[in-house]
């Protein structure tokens, strides 16, 4: 079988955190996460702030090394490689698109220079004319047409959406096979952001790019991705097809997240009052990370960490599904949160 474009195999990332005078605890930013992204697929990672989404993105881009576990890119284990040459080869495979199109471009340079630099860096053999030709091509690929209208501008002369297109053009300059997009539209107005999403989908279709798409917005995950991973407190609590999860979420946290997301066209209106306690990332390893908030938590959930249970194409980390079989529906719905208070 062909290798997956990206594979996380029991990946953990703990950060040291000093506590009191003597103790040292670790913050479990990512705790035993496994998933695959097939070539040419968009996988959405969904979850709230602090759940470990960006740490996953940074590990895939080799900003951090995992504490444990392995990350494979196109079949190659990239964990631990720190030699300059290897890192450079790796960068040609994986590129990142950041959240902030304002902060990620140097205001002192013309945008043609910014994109041109990235081309030169990875293709030093190209002549100046060839670099320029490639820059024009990249501008056109990301919808900045005619390129000549934009080449001579500085980032501050462009709108937020245009800047994000420059960021994408710069990422594409090295012809990566995988793009990591961390909330790429959250700082843009929707009427602009949706076209950035369309551009990314377009690139997936035309150039066969693979994406790890990070978002806190379930509706945009559904728009972009066929499959998604739902994160809570460093754990991947549920994964499967986006449509499947949105139609019938299994994990109690997914149920909570979905019912809290505004959706004016939803038939039934929900009346829930959910607790809003933030998860404790330094907490006990030996429990379900959601057990503190979960209305269905049992003693076992507080003593033991649930495994990953597989139900059809879905994976869920919750004891309720320990004995579930393919075809079984959700064992909880939003009513478990009815009347719950902080």
């Amino acid at each position: 079988m062909e290798n997956a474009a990206v594979k996380f195999d029991h990946v953990k990332k703990y950060f040291g955190k000093r506590q009191g005078l003597f103790g040292k605890t670790s913050l479990k930013a990512v705790d035993d996460v496994s998933f695959e992204i097939q070539k040419g697929e968009i996988l959405a990672v969904v979850g709230e702030s602090g759940c470990g989404k960006s740490t996953m993105a940074k590990m895939l881009c080799k900003v951090y090394e995992p504490t444990e576990g392995s990350i494979y890119v196109n079949g190659m284990d990239v964990t631990g490689h720190t030699k300059k040459k290897e890192v450079k080869r790796f960068r040609k495979e994986v590129q990142m698109i950041f959240q902030d199109p304002f902060g990620s471009l140097n205001p002192a340079h013309k945008v043609s220079h910014i994109v041109g630099r990235a081309v030169e860096l990875h293709y030093p053999e190209l002549t100046r004319a060839q670099v320029r030709e490639r820059v024009v091509e990249l501008f056109e690929t990301v919808g900045l047409t005619p390129a000549a209208d934009f080449m001579e501008k500085h980032p501050n002369q462009l709108s937020g959406g245009q800047r994000q297109r420059i960021v994408i053009a710069r990422a594409l300059a090295v012809k990566p096979s995988i793009l990591v997009a961390d909330e790429p539209t959250s700082m843009l107005d929707v009427s602009i952001g949706i076209d950035i999403m369309n551009l990314m989908i377009d690139l997936q279709k035309k150039e066969g790019l693979t994406y790890l798409y990070i978002t806190h917005n379930l509706a945009s995950a559904r728009y972009m991705a066929d499959r998604m991973v739902v994160m809570y407190a460093g754990s991947c609590v549920e994964q499967g097809s986006t449509d499947g999860i949105i139609e019938s979420p299994l994990h109690p946290y997914t149920v909570l997240l979905l019912s809290s997301t505004p959706e004016p066209f939803r038939e039934e209106k929900l009346e829930i009052h959910a607790a809003e306690d933030l998860p404790d990332l330094t907490g006990d390893m030996n429990q379900c990370p959601f057990s503190g908030r979960c209305p269905r938590a049992s003693d076992r959930c507080r003593r033991e960490k649930p495994g990953t249970y597989i139900i059809g194409d879905r994976q869920v980390k919750c004891f309720l599904y320990e004995h579930a079989k393919e075809g079984d529906g959700p064992l909880v719905d939003v009513s478990i949160y009815q009347g719950k208070e902080l």
Partner: peptide, 17 residues
């Protein structure tokens, strides 16, 4: 028409140019 939705058929959305 620029907001993706959780319900209904998935359709292509367009921004405002």
């Amino acid at each position: 028409q620029a907001f993706p939705s959780l319900v209904g058929p998935r359709k292509e959305l367009r921004g405002i140019p």
